[in-house]
Every structure is written in C-alpha cells, then in structure tokens.
Design a protein around this nucleic acid. Structure first.
Lengths: 192, 192
DNA sequence: GGAAAGAGAGGACATTTGACGCGATTTTTA
DNA sequence: TAAAAATCGCGTCAAATGTCCTCTCTTTCC
C-alpha cells in the first residue's frame, strides 16, 4: 500500500530515502471497504489522506437528505476536509469509499512535523494547494457559466477515469444538476 | 495609497520596518478610473495586486459575449489571475474597476524576491491562499446545492459591502443566475 | 442461488428559469 | 445642464429543469 505512495511521491519530488522513511514511519495505512466512511459530518477531520487504491468521495448532505459531491478522489490523489483539518473544527462534509480502497493517513500533528523537517515535502504540498486552486476556480466558472450539457461533457473529458466508475446520479450530484437532466442529455446525444 | 496597505499588512503580520520598506520599494502604485481595465483576456497577468481603495471585478467573457464574474475585490483585498501569474500563460479572465480605485502591484519577479527574503510575508501569503481555498470550496458547494434565493441571501450576508455597491446584474453574474430570477426573488421578498 | 437493493431510462406534469422587449428612473458623461 | 447610458422592474412567452412515478435490468449480498 505504501509502495504506491512511494512511487508517486518519488516521481514528484526529490525526497531522500531517509525522508521517505520518516514519512512512512508516521503513516497510518487503512483498508476501506465499499460504502465505508472515513469522515462523518460533525466530526473533526483528523487526517490528511492519500488514496493509493480505489475511489473516495467527499460530499455534503442538506437538511432534506440530498447529497452534493464536492470531490472525487481516485487512486494517487489526496483528500481531507481542509478547513476542518487545519482549524480542528467539526466538518460539514462526509468522506466515504465508492470502491474497495487503500488509504494512507497522517495526523495534523505528524504532518506538521514532516512539513517542518522535510522542505521538499513542504514545497510539494504548497504547489499542490496552488494547483488545486486552479482546478476549483475553473470549476466555479464552469458551474456558473456552462449549460448542463457542457458541464457533462467537460466532466467526461476531465475525469474519464472517474466517470467510468461512478453511477450517473453521482455525476449529477457533482455537477449540481438532476439525474433527469443528464438522462435527457444522454438521450439527445444518442439520437444526434 | 501605500499607507492603507501598510496599515493592513502590519495588522496581519509582524514585519519589520525594513521589510515594509523593501516591499514598498518594489511596489507599483496605480490609479484606476471606473471602467478602466487592469487585465484583458489573452494577456499574461503580470502582477499580484492589492486594492487599497475602490472595487475591482474579475470576470470571464464567453463567445456569445456574456460575462461571468469570478471575484469582486474591494479595498483591502488581493487579486490576480493565479494561474496566469504563476505560469506566465495568457489569462482567460479580465480585471477591471467598478469604481475609482487605487491599486498596488508587484511583478512576479519582485514578489518572488520578497517571498524569498521576508519569511513573514511568505507565511502570510500561504495562509491567505489556504483561507481562499475555504471560501472557494464553500462557493462551489453553494452554487451546486443552493436555490437562487439562498444564493442571493448568502451573497448579501457574506458580502454586504460589495452588494451595496454593485448593480444587481453583476450579482446575478456572480451567482450564475439571470437578472430576471433575482428580480423575481426581490419581488417575492417584498410581498412576503 | 435467490432476494433485495441500486441504477437508469423515460413518461407526465408542474414549476422554474431564461430570453426579449418596454418603459420609468437614476446615473454618468460630455 | 442636457444627452446618453445604465439600471431595474415587469409582462409575455418558450424552453429548460425538477419531481414523482413506473418499469427493466444489473449488481450486491446473504
């Protein structure tokens, strides 16, 4: 499980063997079965997580029970609830597994230690945050400016790997449109 | 103009007088009249900007000429096109002034210099990026999960200072709804 | 292996939303 | 100060979207 992470991080940084070893020593490996939860709304998100295998989803539930997906996290991606994790406040989101998954976790305390002692990790993390900002800004633009069909097409284009693995109603939930609308779009695209 | 910035930054950091002086020496002060542009789509966004007075808007224009507002930047806030600024690639957004404004700008080169030499500024900037992430994530959630009326009410609650200063159609453009919809919401709220 | 749950299409209908245009008022600008 | 532009509400109509439902097929889970 850690092997995938090691490959991943070595490709993106120039951490030494010793660095990797420290990171490993503080890592918590966790197997998550499908539908199992990693974070419930109301709890503090105590871990920064790396998905080495599988697929997670971060979502919020409104009062009426409807879900809205903030993020999909397939293998080789990071996830957490940043605000809850940073400030140690209760999260408003849930994180659960859409597939059997393998996750590596670090507590805030341990991650701060790594952050302070491994400059390469710090630099990498900061670059990651910035890149994530580009993506989220683009998503805001898309969601306020695109038609449902454009959003659907963009999703398939940007996340083919996720699209192929999640039910359609979750794509709808991510895009902020109803399943009916997506169903209509697909029908129209078939006929076309 | 720089005085406002100095007050602002001193409140949020513990920079020394010498630090401030270096920052000042690299700052470019700029007066922007209403409707004047600071960035056109297609250009590289060469500056990180602090608004010391006035109100800016960052927006994208689609092929059909419609605008979508990504961000309002009132006095005491920062703005730039992060992706264009970081990677020196052409921007897809425009930035212009909704009011007479006073802006302080730094080039990437100069900002990097400050970044490398003033740890307090670096720490502050990184905290800012992270906080911005919370806000943008919240916006994504709102825009995919809230009704137009909820979005409108949230906007007034979160940005009363902006709301009071911009025409309604810009609020609509920021929220991703039509002016007609906002008009209807206001009518309904009056009657209620 | 069989029951239960999940997924997705699609019909019917109501509601929401948007596009367009008009007119009144305010603000801007020359 | 007068003309031009911007703002905003509103009416009408058409289109888009959502809710609720049923039906079928697939997947999951004892």
């Amino acid at each position: 499980m850690f092997a995938e992470f090691e490959t991943f991080i070595r490709e993106r940084t120039d951490l030494s063997d010793a660095d990797i070893e420290v990171i490993r020593s503080l890592a918590i490996e966790k197997i998550v079965r499908k539908k199992e939860s990693l974070l419930h709304a109301g709890e503090v998100c105590r871990y920064k997580m790396f998905v080495s295998k599988g697929l997670l989803r971060t979502f919020c539930t409104k009062e009426d029970g409807s879900d809205y997906i903030l993020q999909f996290s397939p293998e080789n991606s990071w996830t957490t609830d940043p605000e809850s994790f940073d400030k140690l406040i209760p999260s408003v989101c849930n994180i659960d597994a859409l597939e059997y998954s393998e996750v590596i976790m670090w507590t805030k305390e341990d991650f701060n230690y790594l952050f302070a002692n491994i400059p390469g990790l710090k630099a990498y993390t900061q670059k990651l945050i910035v890149q994530n900002m580009y993506v989220v800004r683009q998503r805001v633009l898309s969601v306020i400016s695109s038609t449902p069909e454009e959003k659907y097409d963009e999703f398939i284009k940007n996340y083919p790997n996720v699209f192929a693995r999640v039910p359609l109603h979750m794509v709808a939930s991510y895009l902020g449109v109803s399943t009916k609308t997506l169903s209509r779009i697909r029908h129209a695209q078939l006929v076309r």
